[in-house]
Design a binder for these strands. Structure first.
Lengths: 177, 177
DNA sequence: GGGGCTAATCAGAATGATTCTTATTAACCA
DNA sequence: TGGTTAATAAGAATCATTCTGATTAGCCCC
């Protein structure tokens, strides 16, 4: 299943991207990343670069374990703990978003163009969803009267088109993911 | 801190409330609950009734452990496992919503009138947010082309008004909750 | 109104994801 | 280029949550 680009015009959710490193195409160079780290007083390590690249490259909202397996191929001595620590760091820097999967465990997504998520309750797949600018604007107005807003995220749950077809009434089929 | 009723007109999010037991005021009688359980072939137990009441009564989005402590006062022999099992059952029946707290662990909220959540990144507090109809309409449009939608939930993160005042730059203050 | 079937509970063990600890390594500033 | 110290690796520890197996109690039927 591919990203569900609901509207041709992609959105710009300012809240999440104030000083984003990403281009409108969702790219972020290694130099930019290194610079951001240094600005924050952090060190740019091989591990951090690889983990970040893996998250940006991946379209499938992987969990920490999956990222670990992938990076391990390039860097066999890396530890799972480093993956977790780095993902937390990247999240704090606003470069990565952590999603809680209904079946447990966190999934990670790069903060490319601001977007939202659909999660299939049957197969567990997570799909990106985009709003147009007008729509994001209306959501943005949610911030009135609340303190300062850092991010707005919409999570839709249901059955993806594949699962809503193939699954009639049964209780617990398909355990992909 | 009280519920942040952002707009005077409360919303009607059909997706989450198809056959809700709740009145528009967010109430649900013990008889209705018992009937729903029986319809689904489940048994109405003391434990389930108490746990449900505790979630409905509570405005603070408690975690399982907190619900356990509360119910234990009335029913000292109850086990934490029963609380977890019951919360999952209530969630499956659409009576309770599970929220993932950024600091780990799940929080629970009754499915009263459809609403969304603001989470303070500083103190961890979760506050209810209501959208007006236009805003809910926007959310509805997110579902075009996706399979069948079961729920739409907006999660806003930021600093609540209290924390945005009292917290200047420091890294990790306030550990309420 | 009581008996039997079986779902639901309790207690504690087990699991799985994530975080901590400690010694070691490697960024990067001077 | 060396010293400082943040970041890492490995494995132990923790935390929330789920499972196991024996026991209890809803509730359907008589």
């Amino acid at each position: 299943m591919e990203a569900n680009n609901i509207d041709s015009a992609q959105s710009h959710l300012q809240y999440q991207r104030e000083d984003s490193l990403f281009t409108p195409m969702g790219e972020c160079s290694a130099e930019d990343l290194a610079r951001l780290f240094r600005e924050k007083g952090l060190r740019m390590t091989q591990q951090r670069a690889e983990i970040f690249q893996e998250v940006v490259r991946s379209r499938s909202h992987p969990g920490a374990e999956k990222i670990f397996e992938k990076v391990k191929r390039i860097m066999p001595s890396i530890s799972l703990d480093t993956v977790y620590r780095t993902l937390t760091t990247l999240e704090e820097l606003g470069l990565v978003r952590r999603l809680n999967h209904p079946r447990g465990g966190a999934r990670f997504d790069s903060m490319g163009p601001g977007h939202h998520h659909f999660i299939c309750l049957e197969c567990g797949e997570i799909v990106d969803c985009f709003l147009n600018e007008a729509e994001e604007g209306i959501l943005g107005s949610l911030s009135r009267d609340i303190g300062s807003v850092k991010s707005i995220h919409v999570e839709i749950r249901g059955l993806c088109s594949q699962c809503s077809h193939k699954v009639p009434i049964t209780a617990h089929n398909g355990q992909n993911h």
